[in-house]
Simulated assay, not measured.
Amino acid sequence: MEGTLFGVGVGPGDPDLMTYKAVETIERCQVLAVPARGKEHAVSYKIAAGKVKHIEEKECLNLDTPMTKDRQMLEENYKKAAEKIINELKKGKDVAYLTLGDPTVYSTYIYIHRIVKEKGYHVEIINGIPSFCASLARLGDSLADRCEQLHIIPSSYAITEALEYPGTKVLMKSASKLGEVKEELVRNHREAEVKMVENCGMPEEHIYENIDEIPETAGYYTLLVVKEPKK
Rank of each mutant, 00 (worst) to 15 (best):
P215I: 07
R37P: 10
L17G: 11
K46W: 08
M196H: 07
M18H: 07
H113Y: 06
I153E: 03
K69G: 00
R146P: 04
Y45M: 00
D94Q: 06
E56L: 01
D102G: 08
A36W: 11
E184W: 08
I211Q: 05
D16M: 07
C133K: 02
I129D: 00
H41Q: 14
K119M: 05
G50D: 01
V116M: 08
I112R: 02
D70T: 12
E56M: 02
L136I: 15
H151W: 11
K169F: 02
E184V: 14
D212T: 13
A134L: 07
R138S: 05
V34F: 10
D14A: 05
D212G: 04
P154Q: 04
T222V: 09
H122F: 09
S176N: 07
I159L: 07
H113D: 06
L63R: 13
M172Q: 03
E198L: 01
N199P: 09
S131W: 09
K117G: 01
K69S: 13
E161N: 11
R28Q: 07
V10P: 10
A81Y: 03
K90F: 05
C60W: 09
G3T: 10
K91N: 11
H151M: 00
I86H: 08
A42Q: 06
S142D: 12
I112V: 15
F6K: 05
D70E: 13
I129A: 00
V170G: 05
L32N: 04
L74T: 09
S131F: 09
V186R: 14
G219S: 14
V52M: 03
N188C: 12
Y165D: 02
G179C: 07
S174Q: 05
S156H: 12
V105I: 15
T168N: 08
L224N: 03
I110P: 06
P103Q: 03
E24Y: 08
E180G: 09
T4R: 13
I85W: 14
K90N: 15
L143E: 05
A134W: 08
V95W: 10
I211P: 12
M1T: 14
F132L: 08
K169P: 00
D16L: 08
L163S: 10
T65N: 12
K119F: 04
P215F: 12
I86A: 02
I159E: 01
L185D: 01
E180Q: 14
T217Q: 15
L5P: 12
V31T: 15
V225L: 12
A81L: 00
V10A: 00
M172L: 14
M18I: 10
P35S: 06
P130K: 01
P66I: 03
E24I: 02
G50S: 06
Y165T: 13
E148R: 00
L100Q: 08
Y221W: 15
A192N: 13
Q149M: 05
G11A: 02
K58N: 03
N188S: 15
E228W: 11
T99L: 04
H151G: 04
A158P: 02
Y111G: 06
M1K: 15
K227S: 01
T104C: 11
L171D: 06
V31K: 08
V116Q: 11
S176K: 14
